[in-house]
Simulated assay, not measured.
Amino acid sequence: MSLLLDAVATARLLPTPALVEHLRAVLRDASVEVPPRLVQALHGGGSLFVMPALDRHIAITKLITFTPANAGSARPAIQGDVVVFDVATGERRLVLDGPTVTARRTAAVSLLAAQALAPAPDGPLLIVGAGAQGFAHLEAFAAGLPLRAVRIVSRSAASAEALAAHARAMGLDASVLAQADAALAECPLVVTCTPAREVVLRQRPREDAFMAAVGAFTPRMVELAPELCRHCADTGGIWLDAADARHEAGDLLQAGLDLAALPTLADLVRGTAAARAGSGPVLFKSCGWAGWDLAAARTALEAADRA
């Protein structure tokens, strides 16, 4: 197998069920180390991300650019690679396609949270944003939940219809809607995966809702209105994908919430926090963490070794 894998080959090595199991394993592994990621602003509004992580056996670095101006164009907003090294020998084992890893591991993280926290896992699912993360979340939720129907909202009608067609090809009931807020009454599963330039949800969700917000991953980005975030905090609960989100989650920071005590997926997997703190909607806020890329690298190596 070639060391340098394109998007198709990378996706083939990252099946959702195995990826979710490796996510759990990373959170239980005391040897895992994740140094702070470097985010360097670039001229023109983009950012360079350098994200290392390691365990006893492998060390990885994700090196990607995030270019918001590419949204809606033929060029992806996220570009780059994940390089995987053997700790004992220093050998480079794999170079994975960075956007594919980012999309699939982010969706798998949301699925892991939904499997533990969603009161109504059969949906319907509302997806706000029909880019790469919209496709990845559709596929992950369909693979890991008893999903039957999906509703899609996007600024791009063509992207929304393409995602709906993909959902129908998977055997799901799918429709495109004009307004995201109007769909909240029907949909107890919600994923927001937009470029996070502005608020896309303002209304209160259902009391049995699970919401995964993944588009905003810097303090200045936002998808959810402050009053919506505060409502979840007061009545249901808010979970973070990792502790780093405490200083990165723009939706929550702009809502004026105290993030210091919010539980993370590690608390959930290790059983150190109750799965549901209240009877209202649950908000899962994901900002990304190199530990998730380490889990993806483990998954890919395992699959490659079997091939």
Rank of each mutant, 00 (worst) to 15 (best):
H166K: 15
A140I: 10
R155D: 02
W292L: 04
P188I: 15
P99E: 07
G280Y: 01
F141A: 09
R206L: 12
Q79H: 13
L172P: 02
L125Y: 07
V32P: 02
A174W: 03
D181C: 08
F284Q: 03
V153Q: 12
G129Y: 02
A213N: 07
H166V: 06
I64W: 00
L265Q: 01
D251T: 11
E139H: 15
A118K: 04
L63P: 02
Q179S: 14
L268N: 06
I64Q: 03
H22P: 01
L14P: 02
L5K: 12
G250C: 08
V190H: 08
A242W: 00
G72S: 10
A185G: 09
R24W: 00
P219K: 05
L294K: 02
E161W: 06
Q133A: 08
A185E: 10
V190E: 14
E302F: 08
A178M: 07
F210K: 04
L257V: 08
A158K: 11
M1F: 11
A300L: 02
L94I: 04
L253C: 07
E186L: 08
R204E: 08
A182W: 07
Q254G: 07
A182L: 14
E223K: 08
P219W: 04
R206D: 11
A25P: 00
C193Y: 01
A183Y: 04
N70D: 08
V83G: 00
R168N: 05
V109N: 09
A213K: 05
R206E: 10
D267K: 09
F210T: 01
K62I: 10
L301P: 00
L3K: 11
D244T: 12
